[in-house]
Structure formats: structure tokens, C-alpha cells
Amino acid sequence: MAASLRNQYQTATSSPELVYFRQATWRLYQPVASVLWQAFGQEHRLRPGLTFTPFANAVRCNAHCAFCSEELVRHEGHQLTAKRLIDDYPAYFQRLRAVLLPFRGFALGLSLSGLEATAEPRWLRGLLACLSGLEAEGVVFDEKVLYTNGSGLATEPSLVPALHGFGLSRLELSRCHDDEDVNQRIMRFNRNQPIWRNAVYEATVRGLHEQLAVKNSCILTQTGIATLSDVERYLAWARGMGVRQVVFRELSRLEGSYLPNVFTDWIELNRVPIEPLLTAVAPTLEAIRPGWQYAGSTFGYYYYNEHFRWQDLEVIFETSSYPALQAANATGVLQKLILHSDGTLSGDWDPDSRVLSRVPAPSLDYYPSA
């Protein structure tokens, strides 16, 4: 099984082997040996290839996706980072330096995510400048990915060359449907965001290709893209914008790991499992749907991907499990580093879980619940 720092890739050579991959999914991931690392006065076990996320939360998110993971509440209690805004940028960037310098020389993947990083261009430019300075001091990012709904790229196109100059590996651009009205029912952009309109979205995407690698990300939902004919129509639309890589993601499997609320209810009601889609594309290796080619499978510590070619596009179907993610975290090996907007560095999306370093941050304020 071929392995990278972050996952393992294998190509099924027989139909029974492909069935086995699909049944076992992320359970086939073979953890690599952890690395002992001194930071903040303690020894930590790090997973080679772990990613670092400076949680983007300078302003409220400008979309209100019906599946938002930041609205999920764990049974044991969960402090939502999304409820705290960053309102002192110099203090935040000083803290960012303090938490990353101890990891100089350890290769990190940079995952720019959280809420919507492009919603506050001044903060994002400051973030890129701070991270570039840290690279000059020996902090190593071997991959840099921005997960975005594209809103700020439409209203502040100067962000595109800034991201290019930073050396962004790719931009994962979220869009849940090729029809703007259907997409709006799922992603629920603020109406003052031009990106909700297809004409703006399409023009924005076409303008990205000269400077950034673009990967379209589509969450599968009963409300939106649910069938193979939906998938192929979406792919034709993406191809028309010059996109050459698309991932279709199943809503992450919760399996009772979060308290019921309107978001978990929506997720379970709208879930589209990938298994029927995989069967429709490739019931066996000998009977693959015309126009499609199986390329291989990826095993991560909490996700499974199946890779195909459709015309000249790379197409990925992905499924993932929150319980598998939490089980990996429970091993004591740090799988991820997250700088939360209250100044806490933790190994979990919960700022009160697996804390590595915490400082008082009086300038980082809560906003009231809606």
C-alpha cells in the first residue's frame, strides 16, 4: 500500500478487492509511527503529516450551511469556537507565532479553514504575511490548502495573487449544486454576497485558474446532488468553468456522537451515502460505467476516498466518520493542531479538549447568540 504522510493509496486489482476496500473503508488505514516532540514544556506524540489550522473567525460566517459542523454539540459538552470573534489582529498574530515556533522543523500541512477565511480580507492578508514570516524562521508547511465558499475571492479579487504569492497548494471551493437556487437552499449565503449567483461564481472560478489550483467540493445531499445523473451534470458544469478536479463528499457519519439538534436532524434526513453511487459507477472492475475509469482508493485515519477519471476530470467520492476521528484522537497521538480564536492551541476542534497551550486573551470577544 503506497503511503504519503497523510494517507495511504492503493489501486484495487480485482473486483473482490474493491468490494473489500468499500466495506472496510478508513479501517484499512495503518497508522504510521508517531514522533515525540517537545513543546510548551511537555513531550507530545505527533502523527507525521498532521495539519495545522488557524481557525478562521475574524467575522461571522457569511453563509449558514444547513450541515455546518460548528453547530454540532458533543454529549460531553462543547465550546464552539465559532461563537468567539477575533477582534485584535496584532494580538492574534503574536499568539500564532508563539504556538508555531515550537514546531520549527516538523513538517505540517496548513489547512486554512474554520468559518470563512475570505470573508475578512484584511485578516486573511495579515494571516498570510504572518505565516510567510514564520516560514522564513524555519516553520515548514509541506502543503497549503484553503477551504472556502469563494465569497471574498469574488468581492476582493486581489486576494487571488496574494494566495498565489503565498504558495497555496490548492483551493477547495465549496459549491453544493449547479443550480443557484438549489445551492442557496443548502449553503444559505447572506443575500449581499454576490457569489450566491451562478454568473458571479462561474466568473470567479474562471479567473482563478491562471494563479491557483482549484478543486470543486460538493457535499452530497438529498436536497441537492444525490444521483449519478446529478453527479454527471455537475461535472459537465464544473468542466465548463475549467475545473479539472471535483470531490463529492458524503455528509460525515455522526453515528450518535453528537446531541440531536436541527443540524443533526438535517444531516441525517439529507444524507446521501456514497455506496450506491460507487456501485452505479463501478459495480465491478469489469463493468465500469461508460466514460468512467477507476484510478484507485485512499485510506485516511477517518475517511475513505475512491478516485475516478471522467472525461478529463479527476473525480473523487469521499466518506468520513466523526467517531473514527474521535477514536484516533483518543489514542493520545495528536492528529491535528488547531489555534482557536480564544488563543487556545489544541488537538481537537473543541478548544477545551486536548489542550497544548492556553493564554488569557481578553481582547478576543464573544458575539451574542442569534
Rank of each mutant, 00 (worst) to 15 (best):
Q8Y: 12
R125Y: 14
I288A: 01
F317K: 00
E268M: 11
V139L: 10
K83E: 09
K336A: 04
L251F: 06
K83A: 11
W196G: 02
S132L: 01
Y304R: 04
S111N: 15
L220F: 06
R354D: 12
A327I: 15
L254C: 03
A3Q: 11
A238E: 14
D350M: 13
I288K: 11
S15I: 03
V140M: 14
R253H: 12
V19C: 09
R74D: 10
L337K: 07
G152V: 11
D312R: 15
I274R: 03
L212E: 00
L278R: 06
I225N: 04
S297K: 07
K215I: 02
Y20N: 08
W266M: 12
Q94M: 07
D265R: 03
V59Y: 12
K215G: 06
F166A: 00
K336W: 10
W26C: 10
E172L: 13
R206S: 00
D142L: 13
L220K: 13
A117C: 05
R206Q: 15
T331L: 14
E202W: 14
V262Q: 13
G242H: 01
V19I: 10
M241T: 03
H78P: 06
P90H: 11
E180H: 02
L168R: 08
R206I: 11
E286M: 15
G291I: 05
A324W: 10
S4P: 13
E306D: 07
E71K: 15
V246S: 07
T344Q: 09
R253S: 08
L146P: 12
R188E: 04
L313P: 06
L364V: 05
Q42V: 07
L115C: 14
E116M: 07
L5M: 13
Y367W: 15
T155V: 04
H78T: 07
R95E: 08
A58D: 01
S69G: 13
Y301P: 09
A136Y: 08
A33P: 09
Q94T: 13
G300M: 06
E286P: 15
R188V: 05
Y147C: 11
G240T: 09
S297G: 01
L251R: 02
Y89D: 06
T279R: 08
R22N: 13
C65Q: 05
V262Y: 12
A162Y: 04
E172Y: 04
V160L: 01
P16R: 01
A136N: 06
G109K: 00
E232W: 07
F40Q: 01
Q38L: 05
A226S: 01
G49I: 03
T118G: 03
V73F: 08
G291R: 09
R309W: 12
I274W: 09
L208F: 09
I274L: 09
